[in-house]
Design a protein around this nucleic acid. Structure first.
Lengths: 209, 209
DNA sequence: TAAACAAGACACCAAATAGTGTTTAAAATT
DNA sequence: AATTTTAAACACTATTTGGTGTCTTGTTTA
């Protein structure tokens, strides 16, 4: 019995699966999670929607597999210990936060995922959130908690506000008028002002805690 | 001709309009903007959906009127000059920011509007955003810009990050796992940690700019 | 009180949407 | 080469959705 996966030019399970998954990404990027209708996905993929049921058990299965297989935050947990840390992680924290900010502004897919997570309850998204939280936990418990000692939680709170702020501002720039607090988030100057502010606040936190 | 608006116990235009508008609010609060389907609104209102077309010209008209007639940010532009300002607006800014944070956590409707604005393009929502921006502009140009002089833009950038951060954290707490950077945003302690951090960052900004 | 008006109930249509049954033919197995 | 398997097209159903036409009857006006 045991049938080999189709490797032909016309019928090919793996290739069709890929087409579906990439169609999900394409639609998510352009229309957001609300645009993930099964008919449209099939149309974009160029494969009959029936296959979504046979391959993934349905729309939910496909979407969950998409979320599971994408590595949205690959940039972050990249190189933790590239350089020795002797400043309590100040430079490293700045680097992580600011590169996060730029990464997000470029990557519309991740922006949509952020929005998605705020809008819809979904196990696979929750898992994504938990993993991200675990990831951050490494930075805190390994590097900044030891440095800040009894003020460790305060630093975490500052981080929360800064990261959350950068998340929101990026989503805002994409969808709203782009001007927030009089700063044009779509210009390089505006974005630099935000990054300088974050940098400044990190400095002050390291100085003043 | 000139017919008086129906004031009967059974048929009453104004009352029905109100029912529709309040149904929109109720659904928005519980299910978010995606739940604003015309059939469901009519069901919640207890009035035939046909009336939505005759009164508001359709679903969009109803929704726009809802947005127009609600005063989501009434708490903010309340009392600008309650006390004399001699600290460059430090106390006032803190007060505005922190009360904003608490207000948002209590008011689910406004949370949904924030999310809505990030998700859907809509003139009436855009207008809301612009009005809010104009409102903030008063605080900046009247109070903080003069105080910070050439660093005025830097303070605006800091404000942007802090306000955006508080927006995001409130939405996050409502929908996601509630723990962000190791801080439980649903507990009083966690929320206090965030507020302390914001307060701390404002202090440092006033000290250090 | 009778006539005119309009609120709104009810039934209907059309489009979009998720999901399934049947058939075809491409590719693997024998 | 014949047979079996199954990828995938096609056609279909059911449900949800927005939107409209018609008729009844409460309410206002004359």
């Amino acid at each position: 019995m045991e049938r080999k996966p189709a490797g032909g030019a016309i019928r090919n399970t793996e290739r069709s699966k890929e087409k579906f998954l990439s169609a999900v990404g394409k639609i998510l990027k352009t229309k957001g999670y609300a645009g993930l209708k099964i008919n449209d996905i099939a149309k974009v993929a160029g494969v009959d929607k029936k296959m979504i049921y046979t391959y993934f058990g349905g729309l939910d299965g496909l979407i969950d597999e998409y979320i599971r297989t994408q590595d949205f935050w690959s940039n972050v947990h990249a190189d933790m210990a590239s350089e020795p840390i002797d400043d309590g992680g100040k430079a490293f924290t700045k680097e992580v936060f600011l590169s996060q900010f730029d990464y997000l502004s470029k990557n519309k897919e991740v922006q949509k995922v952020l929005l998605w997570r705020l809008s819809e309850e979904r196990k696979s998204l929750r898992k994504l959130t938990d993993e991200q939280e675990e990831n951050g936990e490494v930075l805190f418990s390994q590097i900044t908690d030891p440095h800040f000692g009894k003020h460790a939680e305060k630093f975490r709170a500052v981080s929360a506000v800064l990261v959350a702020g950068m998340y929101y501002l990026n989503m805002y720039a994409e969808h709203n008028g782009s001007i927030f607090s009089g700063i044009d988030l779509k210009t390089d100057d505006g974005r630099k002002a935000i990054k300088d502010a974050v940098s400044f606040l990190i400095d002050k936190t390291y100085d003043g805690l």
